[in-house]
Design a protein around this nucleic acid. Structure first.
Lengths: 202, 202
DNA sequence: ACACGAATGGCACTCAGTGCCATATTCGGC
DNA sequence: GCCGAATATGGCACTGAGTGCCATTCGTGT
């Protein structure tokens, strides 16, 4: 078979694999919400998903990845968004706009996002994992911000501070955000960024 | 025996226990630097320390705690320092001064701090653990900052953003800090805080 | 029908962490 | 100095995450 239907870049196998992974993740998330992340064993998830324990670890490298792996791609997307902002824009604004990727995603599927956030916020190791991932994204994002600041040597630390602080705002906004309430995540994020607005970011 | 020598609050047993724990930690840290954190098993640490595996877990709840537990008390100390600052001081300055506890500790024992930082920065799970701990400290510190901002409801998110951002500055400063170099951690921290200085923090 | 590669399942293994119990060590009072 | 009680230690067996290896099965193209 070649090009199933006007070939999207992915083969049939990949599509099926992704679908299975999504199904496992959905099953697991329900269990995590019921019993708590670390009172659910991989064996339970596997049998509830109709696969073997060994196969589970072929879809997800770790139990944490079931919850977190869906967010892996966002790092790159945020960087792309920031790079696409006008070169003379205030970097604090550019950073804020980068996170619109996440805001859109949450707005698109509020219940799912809320469920995931509940599980993450209720589990120390998942919170830690998330923070570390954000920190890693920050490292990737910092060079772009340094470039916009002029890239003088003294600006590297400044760029790092701005980027990490912006992720701190994101984490605060995610913690304050009430998925059932009337305020969008975007509004909460605006408030966090506004609270911190640095004196000179150009 | 009562009051060994003008009794400090701790019994002989406690003193010995702390000494043993410190000895285990020192031994373990050397191994971690040689082979990398996750290529050292608890069995190795235990036998290198002359204790049983089971006893190791009586001194440290987890393998990570060998590296991290020494920092546990700093959260409270930072909060104390901030509370001791003048009530009308700019909160951004108060936060910066709170971290002097850590600066003093690093300055007091630069080689040990450097060794610990190398191990932490070289291990993802330890980085994650550290960030989560900082985040937990931030939660404890936020009410004090909110109080200083006036404690109006709208200020809670502002306080959270400021506190988390200040920890972001700390993490950035720790990452940039060169223990062998001429700049003190305090100077690096000043630079990070200066880079971010928010517009209005009173 | 057949062959080939990928997906799956089963098994045994390492390692972190825990509960339980038996033993040794230390501390208190006498 | 002696003894009972608390405490520290070690050994053992267990759970659960994660991995390597191998046999089997499934999907696909010829």
């Amino acid at each position: 078979m070649q090009s199933p239907s006007a070939g999207s870049g992915r083969s049939l196998r990949e599509i099926k694999t992704d679908a299975v992974a999504a199904s496992i993740a959905a099953t697991a998330l329900v269990l995590f919400e019921e019993k708590g992340f670390d009172r659910v064993t991989v064996d339970e998830i596997a049998s509830a998903s109709g696969i073997s324990r060994r196969s589970f670890f072929r879809y997800f490298a770790t139990k944490e990845d079931v919850v977190v792996s869906g967010h892996a791609a966002f790092g790159e997307k945020i960087i792309e968004r920031v790079k696409a902002r006008p070169a003379d824009e205030d970097v604090w604004v550019s950073l804020r706009r980068g996170y619109d990727v996440l805001v859109e995603n949450v707005d698109r599927n509020p219940e799912g996002a809320a469920r995931t956030m509940r599980v993450i916020n209720g589990t120390a190791s998942l919170r830690a994992h998330t923070l570390e991932k954000h920190s890693a994204w920050a490292v990737g994002l910092a060079p772009e911000i340094a470039r916009r600041l002029g890239d003088a040597d003294g600006r590297r630390l400044e760029a790092d501070a701005l980027v990490h602080a912006s992720f701190a705002c994101l984490d605060v906004a995610l913690a304050h955000f009430d998925p059932g309430g009337d305020a969008s995540l975007g509004t909460t994020l605006d408030a966090a960024f506004g609270a911190l607005r640095p004196e000179r970011t150009r």
